[in-house]
Design a protein around this nucleic acid. Structure first.
Length: 119
DNA sequence: CGGACATAACGTCATTTTCG
DNA sequence: CGAAAATGACGTTATGTCCG
């Protein structure tokens, strides 16, 4: 339904970014696999009560899971849109190549006609 | 058959962009 | 301006193909 709309949006993004950003400091592992998954969570400090701090941790974990799930789906959608965008581009290339061929042929024919006339 | 290589799809993290 | 969404980058996994 919103095909064109999303494509336009994607185009905007791509135009803007130019992707000259490979200096994202590969120095430190940007890898994902085994980072402490709870690193951004409240530490298990000896708090007011073991129960409430435990609940904090559980809440944070739940929040994280929700965020990961949303991002997972966003990534899927993003890839889908990108593939669609690339397909559109490839299609456009094919169309333009055909147009180009036709025009070249037409020009050749016109030149032929002209040559016969002046002879 | 099985290992080496290529490719596609995925999940996660970091960063950028959008929107209220 | 901050939260949420979108996207780039990177590592992992699954699948297919080729070749010895």
């Amino acid at each position: 339904m919103n095909q064109v709309k999303t494509d336009e949006k994607y185009q905007l993004h791509v135009d803007q970014q130019k992707s000259f950003k490979q200096n994202s400091t590969p120095g430190d592992l940007t890898g994902c696999q085994l980072r402490n998954p709870t690193s951004s969570l409240p530490q298990g400090v000896a708090g007011p009560s073991a129960h409430s701090s435990q609940k904090l941790i559980e809440d944070a974990l739940q929040k994280r899971e929700l965020r990961l799930m949303k991002n997972r789906e966003a990534a899927r959608e993003c890839r889908r849109k990108k593939k669609e965008y690339v397909r559109c581009l490839e299609n456009r290339v094919a169309v333009l190549e055909n147009q180009n061929k036709t025009l070249i042929e037409e020009l050749r024919a016109l030149k032929d006609i002209y040559r016969h006339k002046v002879e």
